[in-house]
C-alpha cells in the first residue's frame, strides 16, 4: 500500500511538514517494497486552491493514506471523495510517521482540522 507523508525535505529522516496543501514535498512510501519517492509540491505558492490541487496529486499517485499535521476543508473533501484516509497531528520524521502507522498509533481524521488558507501564514 502506498502512503503519502507531507515533508519539509526529501528524505525519510527529514521532518513531517505540518501543512498539507502548502507542504514542501510529498513522500510516497510503498509499504510492500519499502521504496519511496519524493515529489516537490508545485502547489505550495498558489494564492488559492493549493489543498485541492495537492489532494489531486495524491490521488494521481495512487496513495491510500495521507500523514500530515493539519488538513483544511477543501483538501479533506477531495481526499475523502478519493477514498483516501487522512491522519493528522503527525510530527517527527517521516520514518517515525511510517513506524507509527505500522504500530497503529494514528486514527484517521473524520473532518478537517483547520480552516481554509491556514497553511499560508506558516509558509
Amino acid at each position: 500500500m502506498k502512503l503519502c507523508i507531507t515533508c519539509v525535505g526529501k528524505t525519510l529522516d527529514s521532518s513531517v511538514d505540518p501543512r498539507f496543501g502548502r507542504c514542501g514535498n510529498f513522500i510516497f512510501f510503498d509499504t510492500d517494497t519499502g521504496v519511496f519517492t519524493a515529489v516537490e509540491n508545485g502547489n505550495a505558492q498558489f494564492p488559492g486552491g493549493a489543498g485541492i490541487q495537492s489532494a489531486q496529486a495524491v490521488i494521481a499517485q495512487g496513495a491510500k493514506a495521507v500523514f500530515t499535521g493539519n488538513i483544511g476543508p477543501n483538501a479533506h473533501r477531495v481526499l475523502s471523495a478519493g477514498g483516501i484516509e487522512v491522519f493528522i497531528g503527525v510530527a517527527g520524521t517521516v520514518q517515525e510517521a511510517i513506524e507509527g502507522y505500522k504500530n497503529g498509533r494514528y486514527t484517521a481524521a473524520e473532518r478537517p482540522s483547520v480552516g481554509e488558507k491556514s497553511g499560508m501564514s506558516a509558509g
Partner: peptide
C-alpha cells in the same frame, strides 16, 4: 474541467475499485 480551471475551483476523482467517480465543485474559488 479541472485542468483548464486557473483558479483550482474543480477537482475530479476518477472511478476506481468499485467506487464511482466524482467531480467536486468549489464555487467560492
Amino acid at each position: 474541467c479541472r485542468d483548464v480551471c486557473a483558479y483550482h475551483a474543480l477537482a475530479v476523482v476518477p472511478a476506481s475499485e468499485g467506487r464511482k467517480g466524482s467531480v467536486l465543485n468549489f464555487p467560492h474559488l
